[in-house]
Design a protein around this nucleic acid. Structure first.
Lengths: 205, 205
DNA sequence: GTCTATACTGAGATAGAC
DNA sequence: GTCTATCTCAGTATAGAC
């Protein structure tokens, strides 16, 4: 790849992850990357399309890992449906793995979510992945109406996005509490409980 | 209140709710409100402080209702802790009520959340409310570590914010599916299940 | 105390020279 | 493929009219 283009991508990833998309100007990016302003528009067309490429550069890898993980879980389950917890694990484990090698990238994704820019990117690039996971959730939760499953995935995405970006202010933050991997581990039981809940608010327990 | 000020607040609420904060310029607001640009800075100081007043004008009422609802639930429970479902209801019912009379305001809040602007406003105005609800959750879930409770509230806020703003794309949207009140009703069982889940991912069911 | 007119700085985008 | 110059529009600040 062109070196100018790559320097822009690297710098944009770092700065947008630190400050957010809106708060990071193209002028700041080009100053840090040591390139000209017009080079951004030449290589990417617009600030928004630059963001798109920043996200997809590593996002595509993560997504492939998600699908592979779901493949493995389905092969392991044979004819039976994959457990909810395993579906969630297939979705979150690759993200945790990326977070290990590249924590600032997951943080960047959290920022993009919280700035409301993710839906457009997801719509554009992640549609097949979503279809696969929706099917898996449906098989795992045969008693839930199909609409209800889509809503719960919606709730999950909200909790995930919020959690990727920020943490509650804890009185005594535990070691590694700021770590994205740890956060995802904490999120999982909550989501499993949420998905397994009955559809109406009838009696349970 | 000054009429100019009120016209600015009304117009800002409507436009920011429709388009988001970043996408709505002061110049667009003043053009629709029929006032001068400098009047905004005279009455509010900055675009950010204008947003603060827009949110708090109705947000304060909603918050008072939340505390009153929690008061009633605690009085009803006597010595026993209030059920998780009742704590969640005290938190969400006032929002659903506001949504009934003023659906665009809840949508505005969703936008503010998703643009990452809510934490600053919450920090500034809603701190006592948060304290009260954290205590109620602690009493309702005595077996969960205190940190875990704060994390789950964090997850709840994420799911809520995301749901206030958007809905999943459903194949056959039910009647009223776009209604914020309906969404909150759907969210509740998911959250109850999430809060009641065991802290670690040990065996359950 | 309220508001109008206007100017300042910095943003994203683009045309055209090289 | 790169860069200079320039355009439009944003938020902000202020001087001064009423």
């Amino acid at each position: 790849m062109n070196e100018t283009k790559e320097r822009i991508l690297d710098t944009a990833e770092r700065l947008i992850g630190e400050q957010g998309y809106a708060a990071t100007s193209l002028r700041q990016i080009i100053a840090n990357a040591g390139v000209n302003l017009a080079a951004v528009h030449y290589h990417f067309g617009s600030k928004e399309e630059l963001l798109d490429e920043v996200v997809m550069r590593k996002g595509a890898v993560m997504n492939t890992a998600r699908l592979a993980s779901l493949d493995r879980a389905e092969a392991l389950a044979g004819d039976k449906p994959v457990e909810v917890s395993a579906v969630l694990d297939a979705f979150f484990a690759p993200m945790a793995e990326v977070a290990g090698a590249n924590p600032e990238f997951v943080r960047l994704m959290g920022r993009i979510y919280s700035e409301g820019l993710m839906p457009a990117i997801v719509q554009k690039h992640f549609h097949p992945t979503i279809e696969r996971f929706v099917s898996a959730f449906r098989r795992a939760l045969p008693n839930l109406p199909q609409d209800e499953i889509l809503w719960r995935i919606h709730f999950m995405v909200g909790a995930m996005a919020h959690t990727m970006l920020s943490a509650p202010s804890l009185p005594h933050p535990a070691k590694g509490e700021t770590d994205v991997q740890q956060r995802m581990k904490r999120l999982l039981p909550f989501l499993i409980g949420g998905f397994r809940a009955p559809a109406s608010s009838s009696e349970e327990d």
